[in-house]
């Protein structure tokens, strides 16, 4: 499984805080995962549109579109951070 987390504006727009997704070897990188999520349509295709700035963390470390994925990973998507 891949444990997915969504934060802040993304969580609200997707109306989803977390979910577990079946892991398949096709989910090689974050880019593959984003393609799966975008294909859900509706707010998913809007949030993960090419023009949107979405940050990703894999196992609680900042990652990128090319970050590799493995079964059991925790993947979080969120907007640019605004702390401090």
């Amino acid at each position: 499984m891949i444990n997915l987390l969504y934060f802040a504006r993304l969580r609200e727009e997707l109306d989803c805080a977390d979910e577990a997704l079946e892991y398949t070897p096709e989910l090689g990188t974050v880019a593959d995962l984003v393609a799966v999520l975008r294909a859900r349509g509706g707010s998913w295709s809007e949030v993960f549109d090419e023009g949107e700035t979405v940050m990703v963390a894999v196992n609680q470390e900042m990652g990128g579109i090319d970050s590799p994925l493995a079964d059991g990973d925790e993947v979080a998507f969120f907007p640019p951070v605004t702390g401090g």
Binding site: A76, P80, V81, G83
Partner: peptide, 14 residues
């Protein structure tokens, strides 16, 4: 530290 915190620590303000 505060400059890095602002761009790298996962906090969001509403």
């Amino acid at each position: 530290i505060i400059d890095y915190l602002k761009t790298r620590a996962p906090f969001w303000k509403k």
